[in-house]
Design a protein around this nucleic acid. Sequence first.
DNA 1: TTGTATGCGTTATCAA
DNA 2: TTGATAACGCATACAA
Lengths: 336, 336
Amino acid sequence: MSKVDIKSIAKALNLSKSTVSRAFQSNSDINANTRSRILAYANEVNYRPNHYASNLREQKSKTIAVVVPELENNYFTQIIKGAEQIAKEAGYHTLVYATDDNVCKEREFVTSISNGKVDGVLMSVVGEGHDHSYLFNIDLVKMPIVFFDRLYDDVAIPGITTDDYQSSFEATEHLIQEGCKSIAFLVIDKDHSIGKERCMGYTDALKKHQLPVREELIVNCSNSYTENFVIITDLLTTDKPDAVFASVERLAFSTYYVCNHLGVSIPDQVKVVAFSSLQIAELLSPPLSTIVQPAEQIGREAARLLLKNLKNPNLTPSTDQIVLKSELKIRKSSQG
Amino acid sequence: MSKVDIKSIAKALNLSKSTVSRAFQSNSDINANTRSRILAYANEVNYRPNHYASNLREQKSKTIAVVVPELENNYFTQIIKGAEQIAKEAGYHTLVYATDDNVCKEREFVTSISNGKVDGVLMSVVGEGHDHSYLFNIDLVKMPIVFFDRLYDDVAIPGITTDDYQSSFEATEHLIQEGCKSIAFLVIDKDHSIGKERCMGYTDALKKHQLPVREELIVNCSNSYTENFVIITDLLTTDKPDAVFASVERLAFSTYYVCNHLGVSIPDQVKVVAFSSLQIAELLSPPLSTIVQPAEQIGREAARLLLKNLKNPNLTPSTDQIVLKSELKIRKSSQG
DNA sequence: TTGTATGCGTTATCAA
DNA sequence: TTGATAACGCATACAA
């Protein structure tokens, strides 16, 4: 199969390159017959435009990147799904990248794509604790970014988040109303971003109901299942809380494993609520009470916002912050 | 921020474009001092090579596509994760595309990227029933493809699959040994590809143990949860099987929902086994017996095979078929 | 070791 | 309506 490009088509049909090129443009001055002749032949020889060349020429790639901390989490894959759907509708492709919660990988990737690999980026950042000054070197007009889920609030970049404080507050209040007096809060990083917001919702709810905020019940966990198993086992045997509020899905799973292992009954001895977008939460033993973030919608909104910025390349990109509502789904794990 | 490219750097340093270009190539004749001077300045002005241009020039994009039927399935996201990992290590980016089990979308996407958008493709195809002749128009030397999970066996394209027949046979045998006499088999499409293999494993196991193969127990399901709910409710109330073997994860979830709804006890009244890569299968109520496919490994192997083909662009791509082993994890849902 | 010139495949400007 | 030509930014063959 020899190379088929605009030039070869032109030669075969005894036309010029420009005429052939025009046949593929929608609003171009070209004779209808010539066009259909070209299209017919192009179809016959199975012509596909060369992306390298048109991208170079047009200075856009019709591709967006979606950067997530991890892929093995329903929450993020639902977001990707939503984003991919909107992107697809607008004729964009989607590049997916997992940072493995590593800010170096984040920086390296975003920097490497910042000159033409993609037209824009959707990103859930690694975390505020780290140095993210690399973002100041990115030309955000050339490659707009939209944050979702987590964000850096010292950069003027639009973002989609959820009402973390409010839903955390409600979930805690729910546990209090179920009679819980010592509620543990499991978090990855209580001092930053999402963890911080969620932690504040938790403590404020305690305060409102005159319950003490006990530092030992605010437990910093890690990303490792084995480490968390130890941490949570320790928590349940030492401090014996009557409820566990997991600020991240994974920590709820670990709590279930530990409870199974220790023979601790959920919800009789410990009630559990978690931030989670797991679709089969109801099938767990016992069904898990969840705060469900509208993951797909987050992805869709983020993509829409990005595409909007992509449409107006000359304007300073909007820096809207959109906050979506999560939903508390009360199930057996936190009741009775 | 004015445009920073090789030309502007060259002008600033009083060098020629080619010298500057050389500074970024690893094995190029260039004075060490000149190089470091260029790199220093490039770093200062935050230079990034333009992907459009170098791709066009080098005829490669350093990007692979991963095409999956759906994203909301742990199995496929684990595969993506494995593939992305290998791709990343080799300096490749990963484009993800969901076909929504629609062969038109599959064709459209693969065709649209077949001239330079990506260097190669990993793909789990929509299904054998459909017309996939478009693949014959793809130049597989220019853009190699590797199948995983599902494949078309009338095209000479390498693939990674699992031992579907064997593990299906074993799972069925396990149910028989647990005393089941009427085992239902839930499948999406029993006549093709994966469904076919798995169905044969099931029927052969029945035959080996002198159990009748009853057509009404081989149930074609759909991709819709609501439709499946009706189908499975009907199955459980009419035919009253003593076991359900779900050839796809989703169908096991539906079975759980239906059993909960009907008050049918798993495993006492119905035992359940399923193909599933769900990591928290153990936390379900009851813990679900699964046939676990090595999803991440599939992704890794597929990516490795593709990268191997990408290394030898002149050779006819290898057409290896690699078969990986799945593992039967027996849990409470199929015991006692 | 460095500079000059050319081409990758496409689109856009201008002239015919 | 069509054709000739330049340009997008980079990398290489060849010349100096």
